[in-house]
């Protein structure tokens, strides 16, 4: 089983894809640790999306696929941010997968 070691020496269990085994483990330090494991330094812009992802999960019980994340972001933060290009600059590669990981959500089911 893999795990994440935080600066305060807390050890957080991760699954084989690097997602939290126990969603309750998540807090801001865990998010920063998960981001840093992906070579990301979290900015205010990242946090805005992380909070949005958690809001989506709280509302629907799902980790959003890219399409839903873009639409939800557009609805909440406006069309400038609700674009895959914008999300890609924050969470390179696959924003739905990486964003969900850092936001402490389960791996999105409909993403590869």
């Amino acid at each position: 089983m893999s795990s994440l070691l935080l600066k305060d020496q807390r050890r957080i269990d991760l699954d084989e894809d690097g997602y939290l085994r126990c969603l309750e483990d998540w807090d801001e330090d865990v998010a920063a640790g998960l981001a840093s494991a992906a070579s990301l330094q979290l900015s205010a812009a990242h946090w805005e999306i992380i909070i949005l992802l958690r809001e989506f999960y709280a509302a629907h019980g799902l980790s959003p696929a890219m399409r839903a994340l873009v639409k939800f972001t557009s609805r909440k933060l406006g069309p400038d941010k609700g674009r895959s290009v914008y999300l890609m600059t924050l969470f390179p590669g696959n924003p739905a997968l990486l964003g969900a990981k850092i936001a402490g959500l389960p791996r999105p089911e409909n993403c590869f």
């Binding site: 509302a59 019980g61 399409r67 639409k71």
Partner: peptide
């Protein structure tokens, strides 16, 4: 259980 109707509410976000 997970609330299925909450998940259904996401349908418009998936177009």
């Amino acid at each position: 259980a997970k609330d299925l109707s909450a998940a259904l509410a996401a349908l418009p976000l998936y177009d």
